[in-house]
């Protein structure tokens, strides 16, 4: 329980569930979980379902629960609007940079607040949490003016910088939870073996931090990939990101539901795939740090 990452997988098969009554004992939970999956999955299903329906069926008063004649037409339509690939590319760049920089910078700060004793430590921790409380909507004008002053309007770097402000606090808080859980003895042992402090950290602590890093990176990815308000504000049309691109389907003459759903399905896909790949690590990661208290 104290060493992150090692326990999660093993314990996920609870010993108490062994034995003959197994099948019967799972029926009720299975049913409940299915009800949840169907309910929570409904909006998703509706998005994907609409994406594959002919556009004229989208608003049928008698809803069609399966596309009678599945079509890729909406996807074609969506891809023709504006610059889909360009905006996805920029979103990926922004998300990648936010995740990468957020992790490195956040990790350094997390190490500082969890492995060093210094005056002002508590203040820093509290401040990092407190800055998350500022409603971002209220900051639109000041942030825009600042970015303008430092020449970062309509720049990817400007957007990354902005996203870092809401990714970093979370990263610092979460990683701190992980680091305090890693026994210092491990580092010390490595140093006795001749490692420098940095070397010990890289070789011993970092691997154990992997789940935490994965967890925070997913969080940062989802944030940066899905953010709308600041992306709209900071970037010009030529440099818009994918969420802003989705706004193209909303005109004063109505919303194009079907292509919009196709577009958002395309947008959600990479995140889901990435997520599924690293999901096991996330599950182990998000808590192995925090659980220890």
């Amino acid at each position: 329980m104290s060493v992150p990452g090692t326990t999660a997988g093993r314990r996920s098969l609870p010993p108490a569930r062994r034995g003959g009554a197994d099948g019967g004992r799972r029926t009720v939970p299975n049913l409940l979980a299915l009800v949840f999956a169907v309910t929570a999955g409904f909006p998703l299903y509706w998005m994907v379902n609409t994406a594959f329906k002919p556009a004229r069926d989208a608003l049928a008063p008698e809803p069609k629960f399966l596309p009678a004649a599945p079509t890729l037409e909406n996807f074609r339509d969506a891809l023709e609007v504006g610059d889909f690939w360009g905006s996805v590319g920029r979103s990926a760049t922004v998300a990648g940079a936010t995740v990468g920089i957020g992790l490195v910078v956040g990790l350094l700060a997390a190490v500082a607040v969890s492995r060093f004793a210094f005056r002002g430590r508590r203040a820093v921790i509290v401040a990092v949490l407190a800055v998350q409380m500022v409603p971002l909507v209220a900051m639109i004008i000041p942030v825009f003016l600042l970015l303008n002053e430092i020449g970062q309007v309509d720049r990817i770097t400007g957007l990354v910088l902005t996203y870092l402000t809401f990714v970093l606090p979370f990263t610092v808080w979460t990683l701190r939870g992980f680091i305090v859980n890693i026994p210092k003895e491990l580092e010390e042992a490595a140093m006795v073996d001749g490692c420098t402090r940095t070397g010990a950290f890289l070789r011993v602590v970092l691997p154990l931090l992997a789940p935490g890093l994965v967890a925070t990176s997913i969080y940062a990815l989802v944030q940066a990939w899905n953010e709308y308000l600041y992306a709209m504000l900071i970037m010009s049309q030529d440099n818009q990101t994918a969420t802003v691109w989705l706004g193209n389907f909303v005109t004063s003459r109505g919303t194009d539901y079907a292509p919009m759903m196709a577009g958002s399905t395309l947008m959600a896909l990479p995140v889901v795939v990435f997520f599924l790949i690293v999901q096991r690590k996330v599950a182990a990661g998000l808590t192995s740090g925090a659980v220890k208290g």
Binding site: I140, N148, L233, Q237, D238, G247, T251
Partner: peptide, 23 residues
């Protein structure tokens, strides 16, 4: 000629901010 297209709801919010700058 550089074109930018906006939704009606989003346009003036951005315009307000941009008018405070010199670009």
């Amino acid at each position: 000629v550089k074109h930018e297209y906006f939704e009606w709801t989003a346009k003036n919010q951005k315009l307000d901010a941009v008018l405070a700058t010199d670009k």
